[in-house]
């Protein structure tokens, strides 16, 4: 049987190894984030919109909008128990800026594409620029409990192949 000094020596080695592993993990995750695996995490602006006053903002008529210069902006409103719009069509491979806001309670949205997973705090607009590369239909659903109809609050992202 080992004596306690030997075991402590091994355990100190294990401690050092653990510290190295944790450091590598941290470096790995940070480098992944720096290469934009989480679109918008560093650039998300803190902008707040009074959820009672959507009129006069682009959220009054949500959907995909193309600016004269060709850039795309998608506006989505989350309210119990519906996303507006609940089907969003975007062209594959083009940069799109998403603007999503919840207006009553907390909602959540994960897109099956593009590594987008958002907790939508009422009034706090989630703004992020991303690109959906793979054509297809991606189903998702509000992922933060918002009441009796939570399970019916679905969302479809349709990424359309260029013609």
């Amino acid at each position: 049987m080992l004596d306690h000094h030997t075991i402590e020596k091994y355990e100190l080695g294990w401690l050092a190894l653990s510290a190295v592993l944790v450091t590598l993990l941290f470096v790995g995750v940070i480098s992944s984030m720096l290469t934009q695996t989480l679109p918008g995490i560093f650039t998300r602006q803190a902008s707040y919109l009074d959820p009672a006053k959507l009129a006069g903002t682009p959220f009054a008529a949500p959907g995909l909008k193309a600016a004269p210069d060709g850039s795309l902006d998608a506006y989505v409103v989350a309210r119990a128990f519906q996303f507006q719009p609940n089907v969003l069509r975007v062209p594959a491979g083009q940069a799109v800026t998403l603007h999503i806001v919840a207006v009553d309670v907390i909602h959540g949205l994960m897109l099956g594409q593009g590594n987008v997973n958002l907790e939508l705090m009422p009034g706090h607009i989630a703004t992020l620029k991303t690109r959906f590369n793979h054509p297809g239909t991606y189903t998702s659903q509000c992922h933060e409990y918002c009441g009796a109809g939570h399970q019916t609050m679905t969302f479809k992202l349709i990424v359309e192949a260029p013609e």
Binding site: E11, W14, L15, S18, A19, V22, L25, F26, V29, I30, M33, L38, I41, F42, R44, A46, Y48, G108, N117, L118, E119, L120, M121, H124, I125, A126
Partner: peptide, 28 residues
């Protein structure tokens, strides 16, 4: 709260590091 809008990224990253450090006593 990584997915939360309204909290700045640097605070999330610092607390991520601290979370990783708690792994060490569990490995011990």
């Amino acid at each position: 709260q990584y997915a939360d809008t309204g909290i700045a990224a640097p605070w999330k990253i610092i607390q991520m590091l601290l979370t990783f450090l708690v792994v060490i006593p569990s490995l011990l």
